[in-house]
Amino acid sequence: MAKEEEKRKIRYAMLVDLRRCVGCQSCSVACKSENEVPLSKFRTWVKIIEKGRYPDVSRQFLPALCNNCENPICNRNCPVHATYIRPDGIVMVNMHRCIGCMYCMASCPYDVRYVNPLRKIVQKCFWCAHRVDAGLLPACVETCLGRALIFGDINDPNSEISQVLATNAVVRLKPELGTDPHVFYIAADADAMDPTKGIDIDKIRFMEPY
């Protein structure tokens, strides 16, 4: 019994407090720097929109990153188990296993995966698992200017993320798909969360997959 309690399951999650986000993109660049993300690809970035009519206009931000879902479709659909889920909930891609079929990318409802054009494997945000294992926070969380990003163990009632989650209304992206995403947003703007708002869907430029 003692052992069990000691091994209380950790479930990491990310919380984005958009009241504190300033849209500075330092998370985007921190991630590029930390994980050697090549040009043209992003693991995390901040979507910035402007909404309203002059003079009642506001800017809204939405940092996007892998949701490290509890029931990820990418994991379900990966034919070779290259995508796997760590016990602490982080969804990982095994670089030696990945065959680059890109089916996980097509499956991901958040479009946060990409093929690394240099290494030709699929990569994505994994909450800097190498840093987390060393007891550090993910690079984006560390550098966030407004401390809008909170990362931690939601199974630990004393963690900051648990406390903030307990006292604030949060939303998630596309929870209706049953993926159980683990990136929570406080005060996210509905229009920023809507991928089809504010763009001409017929004129979007798409990138080559790699």
């Binding site: 979507k47 206009v57 097509a106 504010g198 798409f206 990138m207």
Partner: peptide, 18 residues
């Protein structure tokens, strides 16, 4: 009703192609 302009977003991609 809604005036939304996307000022910044990362590029979209189409993984499965021709």
């Amino acid at each position: 009703g809604s005036q939304v302009t996307v000022l910044y977003n990362s590029p979209h991609q189409i993984p499965l192609g021709l």
